[in-house]
Computed example of a mutant assay.
Amino acid sequence: MAYQNLISEVKENILYVTINREKALNALNKDTLAELADVIAYAGKTEEVRGVILTGTGEKAFVAGADIKEFSEYNGKQGEELAKRGQDEVFNAIENSPKPFIAAVNGFALGGGLELAMACHIRIASDNAKLGLPEVTLGLIPGYGGTQRLTQLVGKGKAIEMITTANMITAAEAEKIGLVNHVVPPTDLISKAEEILNLVKQRAPLAVSAAIKAIIASVNNDNGYTTEIEAFGRCFETADFKEGVSAFVEKRKANFSGH
């Protein structure tokens, strides 16, 4: 897949997506968001892809925010459309993807960058990372799901403090409050993400997708228990369920096909 602002490749069933705008600290402009929308859709429909690692080029920034110049003259209606389109095509699309997305946060994850990381299912940060939502310093609020996902991850009080003060926090603080899953040295960032996805790759793909769907339904108040019950039932219809049970009974490693 050839993109102008992204580097993407599939290796050993993992799709590696790198936002490649280092001079702009990997800021999200319209073209980058469009390319992200395309690669997210590709991941969801491609059987070869079992998981995605999303990161930024260089050591300074994962994504330092959105490209403010592009929307500095917008009116209210245009602002709403910007947020809706971004949420639908990129941020919600990641969260609702049947494939697990891991954000490998190298350096600054600010504004839209932190919102992008929060849309991913798992976050790993380098120990030099800084995270924050500084939108109120521009007279704005987060518009790509930041008010919702930060609250889900760290609780109402901490979310209000972070968003209204616009303060950045360290990777260590982010791990302490549950905003990131793991903190590692920069040199170990991608390998830690690979370690997690290599475990996920050993599990039944349809069951992994069903579990993600049920968990996301719970945090979005979308009939989580009902979603779980229905997804649990559908698992019984899969070849992977039969294989998993046979492997358990026969005391061997399961060979899942994703069917």
Rank of each mutant, 00 (worst) to 15 (best):
G143W: 07
F236Y: 13
P100M: 11
M118A: 00
K253D: 15
V184W: 08
Q202H: 07
Y3Q: 03
V90A: 10
E70T: 13
T147I: 03
H182A: 07
V90L: 08
E48C: 01
K23T: 04
A211P: 04
A93N: 11
G143T: 00
A117V: 01
G155L: 10
E194Y: 11
E175Y: 05
I141S: 05
Y3S: 06
S218F: 12
S126A: 15
G244H: 04
K45M: 12
N198Y: 06
G86M: 07
T165D: 02
P142H: 01
I177M: 12
E48D: 08
S72D: 13
K176C: 05
S246F: 08
G224K: 01
F108Q: 04
G224N: 08
V136A: 03
R149S: 00
D188A: 07
K84A: 09
A207Y: 13
E73T: 14
G258Y: 08
I215A: 14
K45H: 08
I7C: 01
A210N: 15
H121L: 08
V183A: 03
L116M: 13
G244K: 02
R21L: 00
I53R: 09
I7E: 07
Y16N: 09
V10W: 03
M1V: 04
T32F: 09
D222R: 13
N128I: 02
T187I: 13
G79R: 10
K11L: 03
A217N: 12
